[in-house]
Amino acid sequence: MMAYMNPGPHYSVNALALSGPSVDLMHQAVPYPSAPRKQRRERTTFTRSQLEELEALFAKTQYPDVYAREEVALKINLPESRVQVWFKNRRAKCRQQRQQQKQQQQPPGGQAKARPAKRKAGTSPRPSTDVCPDPLGISDSYSPPLPGPSGSPTTAVATVSIWSPASESPLPEAQRAGLVASGPSLTSAPYAMTYAPASAFCSSPSAYGSPSSYFSGLDPYLSPMVPQLGGPALSPLSGPSVGPSLAQSPTSLSGQSYGAYSPVDSLEFKDPTGTWKFTYNPMDPLDYKDQSAWKFQIL
């Protein structure tokens, strides 16, 4: 009977010793046993002879290597770790002494450095960015050149030099007046198309007034536009458009034309069986010896 009264063996659950049927240790109110408190290391007290050895090595170098620390530790009968900690504390003490010396050398008012006064946003004049500046400075420094007289040679050079070769001289006033084509001369031969040399188009003023001019072949195509416009036809070669000034309004060009419109200028042929003959000019830059190549039959 006494065997049943004795408590059973101890069981360990999660490293906790349980005594038989008792489960009081598993209750929430019972805390787990805490780790033992780490003991504080005792402070090391250095003797005068030990301090002399350490100070002598510190005077040589503030960062001794492990071999120098072990050698000193053997002399003063201390572990190497204590020597390492002593050098660490000695360097910190040396830095603190240097900072105190710097503070003593500075004057009393030198510690508080005078800061520059901050400028207020409204006091300083700042350039306004509302208006974009002129990058080319046209509004201040540029002045347009004065327009020359209508009959000045410089204007003629600016007008005619675009179309004339570089080897030719500017046309005088008398020749510029001949550039304007007359109405009857352009409409006299509506079906004849003559190819003149390129030099005649640039230099010869008579080429624009003769039936064999460069633009005589364009007349049949330009004249039928007159009834559609409801007024006189516009002429690209009329009046002052080739003269001194090219800047004319469309209203000033509306009254200039080749001449009176005639039914002869239409595109319809009077004789459907007729042929169109292209007159060959020996001055043509295209060297075609066979003139029969310039004739064709309209079917």
Score class of each variant (00 low, 15 high):
S152P: 11
K38C: 11
S213L: 13
G217K: 08
V131K: 06
E55A: 13
G209W: 15
V23E: 01
A207K: 08
P36G: 11
S150N: 04
D140Y: 03
R48V: 07
P147I: 05
L179V: 04
S238M: 07
K93S: 11
Q103G: 06
V160R: 05
C132F: 04
A174H: 04
Y32S: 01
F296H: 00
Q111Y: 09
Y214L: 09
A158R: 07
Q175F: 11
P144F: 10
N281F: 14
Q248M: 04
R95E: 14
A196K: 06
Y63W: 15
R41L: 11
N89S: 15
Y63C: 15
R95A: 13
P133I: 06
L74T: 08
P108N: 05
P244D: 02
Q50T: 13
G151N: 05
A121L: 07
V157M: 04
V30P: 04
S150L: 08
D130F: 07
T154P: 07
Y195F: 10
S152F: 09
C94D: 04
G20W: 15
T154C: 08
Q97N: 08
S182M: 15
D284G: 14
P64C: 14
Q84E: 15
L246V: 04
V242E: 01
P153Y: 14
A207H: 04
F87N: 15
Q99W: 08
V160E: 00
S216M: 10
P107G: 08
P205H: 07
R126D: 08
S241D: 02
A192T: 08
A174R: 12
D287N: 11
S238D: 02
L25D: 01
H10F: 11
S252I: 10
T159D: 00
S262C: 09
Y280M: 07
Y11P: 01
Q256E: 04
P144M: 04
P165C: 12
S206Q: 08
Q100S: 06
P240M: 13
T187W: 13
A174W: 12
R115M: 01
D284A: 14
G183M: 10
S249D: 02
P236M: 13
G239P: 05
N14G: 05
F296T: 00
C202Y: 09
L16P: 00
E80D: 11
P224H: 07
L74Y: 05
A114F: 04
S245K: 07
P133W: 09
V72S: 15
A117L: 07
S257P: 03
D219F: 15
Q100M: 06
F215T: 01
A117E: 04
A73E: 12
S19T: 06
T129C: 05
R69H: 13
P172L: 13
G178W: 15
P144S: 02
T45M: 10
R95Y: 13
P224F: 14
S141Y: 07
R90W: 14
S161H: 10
S22T: 05
L246I: 04
S266Y: 12
S164C: 14
Q99M: 09
Q62E: 03
S164I: 15
R176E: 04
P144W: 09
G148Q: 04
D134T: 04
A196C: 07
Y67E: 04
G243M: 08
P107T: 06
Y4P: 00
Y67A: 04
Y208H: 03
Q248N: 02
S266H: 08
A29L: 14
